[in-house]
Design a protein around this nucleic acid. Structure first.
Length: 300
DNA sequence: CACTTGACCTGTCCGC
DNA sequence: TGCGGACAGGTCAAGT
């Protein structure tokens, strides 16, 4: 669920809160969520001060002054919530229940809390992860870019040097797969997940099962613009909260109020009025407008 | 090698 | 009301 926009919002939040803070202690439950050697934790994490919070693809990197970094993947249900004083209540927060900025988070830790960091200002950073797919690894900063995950990751789609030409060339590395599978492939382009794949394909009027090689140059250029548009719009709207996503303050995002197809099956397409349909593509729930996004017949 | 599918988990929702 | 099963979606290992 956290894709590039959501992780970027968390990064911005944490980068206002963490740098300069010293980590006093850490507790965790399963080794799966926090598979780090105890000796490393004691030597390079406890007592270390946060220097910077960065992002690459859907991964957060909290750089410490110990020459180590915390590398964090939230996978689908991970949350990183910073709590200075606990006064909010689940579903309400200071915005009131039902408000798009209301909180999903009650008093922490709760049963989904996997790791808790306590800081020198007595604030706490909670890593909650209902499904235990996410992880936090303590890695020497110089080696972070060498871990398997980063070695094969594609370019960031929102940087100014990522051109439409680069976008086309990356996608065409997977000519015989569907355009949706190629967008979701992190080695092709970093950070795109199910929500923004569907939203950008609707924007460019491309059926998700179309082979990459069968999408015209003009359509690929349009997809490039629409993808960057939806990613940037989502960052402006605080990300997408489908089920679990919250920012570093525990607040939901509102992008899904602006979504055109994602989770809108059965509703009218805002461009042509046709009923939005849901199908399965590349093993994922996929939302399309059957009129705007017609399958393309390809010559064998 | 290129590409697809299943496993990893837990909570929720839907139909009987 | 309880219960089984489908589903959610990021990534990697295993399969075709």
């Amino acid at each position: 669920m956290p894709e590039l926009p959501e992780v970027e919002i968390i990064r911005r939040g944490l980068n206002r809160l963490l740098p300069g803070r010293r980590i006093v202690s850490v507790t965790h439950d399963t080794p799966k969520s926090f598979p780090n050697a105890k000796a490393d934790v004691e030597q390079f994490l406890i007592g270390a001060t946060v220097k910077d919070v960065r992002r690459r693809a859907k991964v957060l990197i909290i750089e410490l002054d110990s020459k180590y970094s915390l590398v964090i993947h939230l996978k689908m249900t991970g949350q990183l919530v910073y709590v200075k004083e606990q006064f909010s209540h689940k579903g309400e927060g200071r915005f009131g229940a039902g408000h798009p900025n209301s909180s999903l988070v009650g008093k922490l830790p709760d049963k989904s809390t996997r790791v808790t960091f306590t800081l020198d200002n007595s604030a706490q950073l909670f890593f909650n992860d209902q499904r235990k797919f996410g992880w936090i690894r303590l890695i020497p900063t110089a080696e972070v870019t060498n871990i398997d995950f980063f070695k094969k990751i594609g370019p960031e789609p929102l940087t100014s040097d990522f051109t439409s030409r680069a976008f086309r060339e990356r996608l065409l590395k997977r000519p015989n797969t569907s355009i949706k599978a190629a967008l979701l492939d992190q080695s092709v382009i970093a950070g795109v997940g199910n929500i923004y794949a569907d939203e950008s394909l609707w924007g460019a009027k491309i059926h998700p099962t179309t082979f990459v090689r069968a999408v015209s140059k003009q359509k690929l250029n349009d997809l490039y613009n629409k993808l960057r548009y939806v990613l940037e719009l989502s960052i402006k709207k605080g990300g997408s909260t489908d089920r679990n996503y919250v920012d570093s303050a525990g607040k939901k995002g509102s992008y899904l109020n602006f979504a055109r197809v994602f989770r809108r099956e059965g509703l009218d397409c805002q461009r042509c009025g046709t009923t939005i349909a849901k199908l399965r593509v590349a093993g994922r729930g996929t939302h399309i407008c059957p009129n705007c996004q017609k399958p393309k017949k390809v010559k064998p």
